[in-house]
Simulated scan of single mutants.
Amino acid sequence: MKLFERFSSDMGLHVMEVPASARAALRTDHVVGSGPDALRVLQLQGGIGFAGAERVIRETVNTSYPETRIALDLTRVHSIDDVARRMLLEIARRLTLDGHDVYLVDPESIMPDPDPGDGGRVTVVDSLDEAGGPARSG
């Protein structure tokens, strides 16, 4: 019983605290640029908890990205809980181990301690431009 109470507490899965139906955590999955300079952008949005991070994992884990560089864009994320943070960092770790350069676009420092550990690495930047995306026209 204690184990299930701990899971419920740690993962925000209490039966009476069902989050309101919201837009998907993964807003867009697109590529900017082309050729060796192409950057795959996974733009996240909203408040991300366990369920949202799980959806992002489901979208990315079985996908083989041809681009060398991948950005997890948190510009539209307003909050992230600890379990979701760990899950997203695991995505970054796996992408790194698969040979990708991973960027975390986090201008508001939403993701505390962005270290994926165990051979993973992520470069934290304030904008897609810093990740090497094409210049935006104003």
Rank of each mutant, 00 (worst) to 15 (best):
K2S: 02
R6Y: 04
S9M: 09
M11F: 15
G12F: 00
L13N: 05
H14C: 07
M16Y: 14
M16N: 14
P19Q: 11
A20K: 14
A20P: 13
R23P: 12
A24Y: 02
A25I: 05
H30I: 02
V31Y: 02
V31Q: 03
V31H: 06
V32Q: 09
S34Q: 04
S34N: 07
G35Q: 01
P36L: 06
P36E: 03
A38C: 03
R40Y: 06
R40C: 09
V41S: 09
L42E: 04
Q43Y: 00
Q43S: 15
G47F: 12
I48K: 07
G49V: 00
A51H: 11
R55M: 08
I57L: 13
I57W: 14
I57M: 12
R58A: 15
E59D: 11
T60F: 05
V61Q: 14
N62P: 00
N62C: 04
T63M: 08
T63A: 13
S64C: 10
S64F: 02
Y65E: 03
Y65T: 12
E67T: 08
E67M: 11
I70W: 08
I70A: 09
A71I: 08
A71E: 09
D73L: 10
L74P: 01
R76A: 15
V77C: 01
H78K: 05
I80A: 01
I80E: 00
D82H: 03
V83E: 01
V83D: 00
A84K: 00
R85D: 02
R85E: 02
R86W: 08
M87K: 05
L88G: 02
L88V: 00
R93T: 04
R93W: 05
R94D: 11
R94G: 10
L95E: 08
T96V: 04
T96K: 13
L97H: 09
G99F: 03
H100T: 08
V102Q: 07
V102D: 09
V102F: 04
L104K: 05
L104E: 05
S109A: 15
S109D: 14
S109R: 14
I110P: 03
M111T: 06
P114A: 10
P114S: 08
D115C: 05
P116W: 10
P116Q: 10
P116L: 01
G117M: 10
G117T: 05
G120P: 11
G120F: 04
G120W: 06
D126S: 15
D129E: 14
G133N: 06
P134L: 04
G138E: 04
G138I: 02
G138L: 05
